[in-house]
């Protein structure tokens, strides 16, 4: 019996690090570490499979949006004369730059939602504009996939993709109108495109 108990403790001792590595705390640690290392791919690998798929879809949607912006400028150039290509605007942030802002993620509480699903209440500390500290408290869901907890951001990514896709469609509609000669000048066309994009956002938010 003693041997069995000793063996049980041995098993627990061996399993303990593995358990810690598969805990929600470990998920937050992995997110913080990969962000600190500027490892965008590693950071994303800690999202659920569905989130990663949606994130990839969002990137595709953003690429199409950028292409629509370029096409819009080209359509304006063709119809009204050159010069409309978007000038590089300083301040756009890529994912690595955003990740560099992260300082810490603290787990405040958990609520089990199922055997492989847990709700996490977290406090996130990041650096904002001019190094200002930004503290957020959010509730996320983590799901266990292949024995590892991963963060669920699929709904957010899907929402962003819907808006981006809608804005791209709005741009493309105005591009057709520019080509058809609907607008008297380039500024009227830009106003139409801006309004169409804002309408997408209004529609998205009801």
């Amino acid at each position: 019996m003693k041997r069995v108990i000793a063996g049980g403790w041995l098993l627990f001792a061996l399993a303990a690090p593995a358990l810690a590595e598969n805990s929600p705390e470990d998920l937050l640690r992995r997110l913080t570490q990969t962000a600190a290392q500027g490892d965008a791919r590693g950071f994303l690998s800690n999202l659920s499979n569905a989130s990663q798929r949606e994130f990839a879809n969002l990137q595709t949607a953003k690429t199409e949006f950028s292409r629509a912006q370029q096409s819009f400028a080209a359509a304006l150039d063709q119809r009204f004369g050159g010069g409309h290509q978007p000038v590089r605007i300083v301040g756009d942030q890529d994912l690595t730059s955003v990740l560099a802002r992260l300082r810490d993620i603290e787990l405040l509480s958990t609520r089990q939602l199922g055997p492989n699903k847990i709700q996490l209440r977290v406090r996130t500390l990041s650096k904002g504009f001019k190094g200002r500290e930004v503290v957020e408290e959010d509730t996320f869901t983590a799901v266990r996939e292949q024995g590892r907890w991963e963060l669920e951001l699929a709904n957010l990514a899907q929402g962003a993709r819907q808006i981006t896709t809608g804005q791209t469609a709005a741009f493309n509609a105005v591009i057709q109108q520019v080509r058809a000669g609907t607008y008297k000048d380039d500024i009227s066309a830009m106003i139409a495109a801006a309004n169409a994009r804002r309408n997408v956002l209004q529609g998205a938010h009801g």
Partner: peptide, 17 residues
């Protein structure tokens, strides 16, 4: 921070010919 990871298409609406 979290919303900055996932953003939708943004940027200036206007340019000059």
């Amino acid at each position: 921070f979290w919303c900055s990871i996932i953003t939708y298409g943004l940027g200036p609406s206007f340019s000059a010919g």
